[in-house]
Each structure stands twice: as C-alpha cells, then as structure tokens.
Design a binder for these strands. Sequence first.
DNA 1: TATAATGACTACCATTTGGTAGACAATAAT
DNA 2: ATTATTGTCTACCAAATGGTAGTCATTATA
Lengths: 216, 216
Amino acid sequence: MQAGREFLMKETDLDNGHGTVKERILKEALYLFSERGFEGTSLQSIADAVGIQKPSLIYHFPSKEDLRRHVLESLVAYWKNELPRILTPADSSSDRLVSTMTSLINFFVEDLNRARLVVRELLDRPEETFALLSEQFSPWTRLIGDYLRMGQQSGLYRKDVAPELFIVQVLVMVIGTVAIGGATSGLVSTESYTPRGLLIKELVRIVQASLYSEQP
Amino acid sequence: MQAGREFLMKETDLDNGHGTVKERILKEALYLFSERGFEGTSLQSIADAVGIQKPSLIYHFPSKEDLRRHVLESLVAYWKNELPRILTPADSSSDRLVSTMTSLINFFVEDLNRARLVVRELLDRPEETFALLSEQFSPWTRLIGDYLRMGQQSGLYRKDVAPELFIVQVLVMVIGTVAIGGATSGLVSTESYTPRGLLIKELVRIVQASLYSEQP
DNA sequence: TATAATGACTACCATTTGGTAGACAATAAT
DNA sequence: ATTATTGTCTACCAAATGGTAGTCATTATA
C-alpha cells in the first residue's frame, strides 16, 4: 500500500485557530500526564490526541522527559509572573494572605489538571520537586512568612500559628482538595462527587478559623 | 548455558522468617506501586525485589490488575477491622473525633507508602476509588458526622463546621500531608524536608482550631 | 530563481511489557 | 508406594514503547 502523501499541511508559528502545534502538544500532554500519569501516558497517545504522528511530536520535543519538563515549566512560569503581581501591595482592601490563597485556588480550579500534575510530580519525583519549589518559590514564601509574623504581632493572626508550616499546609490542602477532594468525598456520599465549590468553601473556613484571632 | 536447576527451594504457607511468598509480594508491591506508581512498576521489578522469577509471581497473582486489587484490599481490610474498635465508646476520656484522627495519622505515618498509594489510586481511578470509599466507609463517616453534629449542639464544636465536608477535608489533609508534605516543604526550606512531626503538629493545630468553639 | 531550513511523514528498531506453556522438584494425599 | 497438588523455574511470545533514519513538501532566505 503505497502512501500517496497528497497534501501535507504545515503549521507555522502563526496561530490558526487552535494554537501552534507545540502549544497543542503541551496542552494535551498536561491533560494526559495529569489524568494517567507520566508512565501511564505513551507518546503515541499524545500524538493521537493532537492529531499528528509520533515522530512529528518528537521533532518538537526530542524526548518524553523533555516534554515533561516543558509541561512543568509552563506551570512554574505562570507563577513566577503572577506572584509579584499578587503580593505587591496594590490593594490593601483585603487580607493579602487570603487573596493569595484565593488566586492559588482559582488557578488550580480553573484547570484541575494542574493540581493533579503537581501532586503526581510530588509523588513521582519528591526530591526533584522539592528542589524546584525551593529554587523558584522559597523567596516568595519567605515574604509571606514575614507578612504572617507581622500580622501575629499586630494581633490579627493567632499567636500559635507556625508561619512556614502553615504556608506548606495551605498548599497541601489546596492542591489536595482540587486534585483528590472529589473522589475522597465518596467517604460521605453514595451518589456523586461533592461539588468542588462546597469543599473549597469548607477549606477556606478551616484556613480562616485556624489563622485569625477571635475578636470579641 | 544449561540450567542445572540444582536445588529448588519451595516455600510452604508456614512463616520461615520473612513471611509467606505471597505476603512478601504484597509488601514489595505496596512499596513499589506507592513509590513509582502502578504503571511505573513492572512485574519484573516486583519479582526482583522479592527474589523470585516473574512467572512465579504470576502464579500467586494471575495478573497485575489482580495484584493491585489485593494490595488495596489489605489496606481496606485493616480499617474495616479498626474502625469499629476506635469508634466504640470505650474510653470517653478524650474527644472521639480527635482520637480517630490520631489513629488515622498513626496508620499512615507508620508506613508512608500507604498514604502515597491511596493518593495515587484517587488520581488514577477516581470513580472506582470513590465507589470503594463509599461502599466500605460511608456508614462509619455518617456516624462520625452525627457525633460531630451532637457536639455542635452541645456547644463543644463550632456551629459553622460543615460536618461531612469537614470529615472529607480532614482525610485530604492527613493523607496529603503524609504523602506530599515533605516534598512540598521545599516551598519554605532550602536544605531538606521539614520533619514530618512538625508538619503534623501544625496540621493538628489547624484541625482543632477550626473545630472547637472558643471557650472564654 | 535557487537554496536552505522547517516540519511533517513512512518505515524501522531494540527493548521492555504483561502474560503463557510446559518441565520439574518437593510435598501432601491415597 | 503411587499419585496429585503445589510452587518454582526456563523458554517463549505478541504487543507496545521510546526513539532513529531518512524522505519529501512547504516556506523562508539568498
């Protein structure tokens, strides 16, 4: 069966409706990695999802490992951009800690795959992910930690909060809730997943109750 | 290179130091599944870890899927036994809710692979795991929910706690902290994992602060 | 217009995967 | 003592995997 090879569409860097091939690969890879895990996802399945052949995929990302890094990088890049904006004292209307958490929640809820991917990375490559978080974000979390300590001295926050540990716990709770909260709700429901909104509402309540001092 | 096949040890059901072959397989499978994931673990690697050949492994567990189910079953079985004991009003000395959470934490801290495996299952097979939790544990969590509501009426617990959602969140926090807390602590440390004990201490603080009413 | 670079393809390939077939030794049952 | 069962092994196998080689059309560059 000789090929024929009649037309061979070629995609330039210009966006023609669905984005660059490279972007589409990253999108499908994020989805499949987060849904089935890195090891559980074949390059073939990604190529199929994008609608190209495997070697075309490998042309854009020379190895599976390379693709993984780029997928992860896109998440990191987002936060390296966003964090300065969020933590800049632009509006002092609401608590900066809570607004940061809100941004965090929104980011992960907007696309659940992000949370799932992060959790998988933390499980699959703990040391590597530890190092990445440390390098990319520890300055920012130190800032938040200081902010938290100030709030403690001013009496806004509880004195028994352990700032650094609290920050870690909040992240664990947020990505945990988004990534596995739905399925975990099988504990209390026989019908279907508890709406994520409700879970997050309770999460926010827990965080606030364990953070703020009681003002009588 | 002809085999030789000089001795062929055979293991009976009797324990000869390291447990039955079947038990050793389950142990290594739990470890490898939780560390590398189901898809990331080959039957060969499990057989190597146990010190047998692959077909011997398949003799005991006819398929990889079958092995997975048995590994999971051993965790479920433990809690089906333990929960009645814990929730029985034996000692009313300490809060039953907190003592249950303590048992939960101890179980997962005792062997970190347990928490990692549960998280992986929740990610890899959300619907299936939802159903399993629902079938096996929802009666028990309903009991805890009622207990929580009683405590609310007596004024012990905060009125704004949403019992069912709170229970789900506590489980998410506990297994989240044990499974990914260490690596997540890269956010605030450049050196090494934050000791799990500290993370858990803050976790317990958060839970208690968000559960108990302030008694002035 | 000729030439180089890009991006897609077909056809492979070595390795690993989950799993099977069948031989064989040790133990248990008759 | 003979037979059946159990558990382990060696030797395979088809399918899938990550990746390579090389072809060819389109686009950009000279």
